Computed example of a mutant assay.
Amino acid sequence: MPHLQFEINKNIDNKTKKNFAAKIRDSFSEVMQTGTDHIAISIREYDKYNLSIGRANPDEELCLMNLDVREGRTLEQRRVLALRFMSIVNKEFKIANRNQYITFTEHKGEDFHLIEKYLASWKNGEDPLA
């Protein structure tokens, strides 16, 4: 059950957030070869100067992404996902690619829990809730 967290230093309207979440969910499912029902997404909005990236102008808009995922994906999958997410953030939130930063944190499947069960280790093409 990935938890995909997006922290931005601007306010976004609800329609944009809804479209953004759908694109993120679909991209994750496609790249990471899994279903969508277990994907959790957080969008956190902060005031302008509550986020910082050393290389970014402090007056510009930023997006920090923390992606908690099950272990087992390749570096290539994670890189493809990172670039897709950056593109989606750029298009939907109008945040420059240079002002985005992604951290992946990998966990065992058993670290992710839903009411009906915990998840197993990731397998290519699986539906973790089946």
Rank of each mutant, 00 (worst) to 15 (best):
A21Q: 11
E60R: 04
D26Q: 08
E71G: 06
S52Q: 09
L83V: 04
G109C: 08
E110L: 05
Y46E: 04
T36P: 06
A21E: 06
S29N: 02
F112T: 07
A120S: 11
L67T: 07
R78K: 15
L4I: 15
V69Q: 14
K18T: 03
L81A: 09
R25G: 06
Q5T: 07
D68I: 04
D37V: 03
K108W: 01
F6D: 02
Y46C: 09
R44L: 08
N97F: 01
E76T: 15
F104M: 10
K15W: 00
D68F: 01
Y101P: 01
E30F: 03
I8A: 12
T105F: 10
A22Y: 05
R44Y: 04
V69W: 15
A130F: 02
A22F: 06
K91E: 15
R84G: 00
I95L: 10
R79C: 00
R78W: 12
K108H: 09
I95G: 06
D26V: 00
S121A: 11
S29F: 03
F85C: 13
S87Y: 03
I88H: 04
D26T: 02
M65I: 05
E71N: 06
D68N: 15
E92M: 03
V69D: 15
I12R: 08
F28Q: 04
A82P: 01
I53V: 09
N90C: 02
